[in-house]
Design a protein around this nucleic acid. Structure first.
Lengths: 134, 134
DNA sequence: GCTACCACTTACCTAAAGGTGAGCGCTTTC
DNA sequence: GAAAGCGCTCACCTTTAGGTAAGTGGTAGC
């Protein structure tokens, strides 16, 4: 067995093209600015449209509407219409399938926090370098 | 303790705003169409610029160049210039820090594969429904 | 009958991501 | 000396994500 010193085998072996496309699929389904924030907002319990609009700060009704549709298409949330008297009522809730996102959400948020720290530290180091060079 | 039946507590408790921003940071650093494919291409070993260009199919030199710069800024890859005789040589390699992406890559690719299957199945079910209704 | 809430939709605009094609300075090979 | 490979950059264009502002059809309250 040959060992190439510079090789860092994070991803081993055979499945790379499949993995690349799988990751692309995942990013397609849950990527973008709003999908995961909406999922997290619903994780605290069902929400009505206007509640979500208030909860997910900065989103516009147009974007919220389209994001909800895509999330529903992907089986991650459910739109439930009911009647409160003569008024119709729309509830959005996470599906059980959405639980499968647990690992992804954990890994991403953990890495994101760690990475933010690392970037901050990088800036600190650069400032120090600049200070010592002058 | 009150239990709200409709609540699916994927994400428990207090840390939601922090988690949302952490996930946003992660997506900012490794999101987009090409960053993770490039990382996976480098995972098999160091590559030269034009090798990467051939390996990551469909990418243009302009985009490859800018993606490599961003990945370097984020400390995920390193650009190594050396001399082969009179010719200069540029190698890109993953940093050790990039190993921290392991979990993210695993979770995302696993979920992506599973999700693709689920979507396919959904289409199958819909075709069946349509068939029974007619 | 005016206002306000509900759940959205429509039309329009902007900014950023990404694609296209050409070229640059260098060296090696034919 | 022409062509081809190296590692890019430049100028320009298209596509898409997302933002803005207004409006829609319904109900309910004052």
């Amino acid at each position: 067995m040959k060992i190439i010193p510079s090789q860092i085998p994070i991803i081993t072996g055979d499945g790379c093209p499949a993995r690349i496309s799988a990751i692309a699929d995942a990013i397609y389904a849950i990527g973008g600015k709003w999908k995961l924030p909406i999922v997290l907002a619903l994780a605290g319990g069902n929400q009505r449209f206007n509640d979500l609009h208030r909860l997910v700060q900065g989103i516009s009704p147009k974007v919220l509407s389209s994001e909800l549709k895509e999330l529903e298409l992907n089986g991650l949330i459910e739109r439930k219409v009911s009647m409160a008297g003569t008024q119709m009522m729309v509830d959005y809730e996470l599906t059980e399938y959405c639980v499968t996102l647990h690992k992804v959400l954990d890994a991403l948020s953990e890495w994101g926090m760690m990475h933010k720290e690392k970037i901050k530290q990088g800036f600190r180091e650069k400032r120090q370098e600049a200070a010592t060079n002058n």
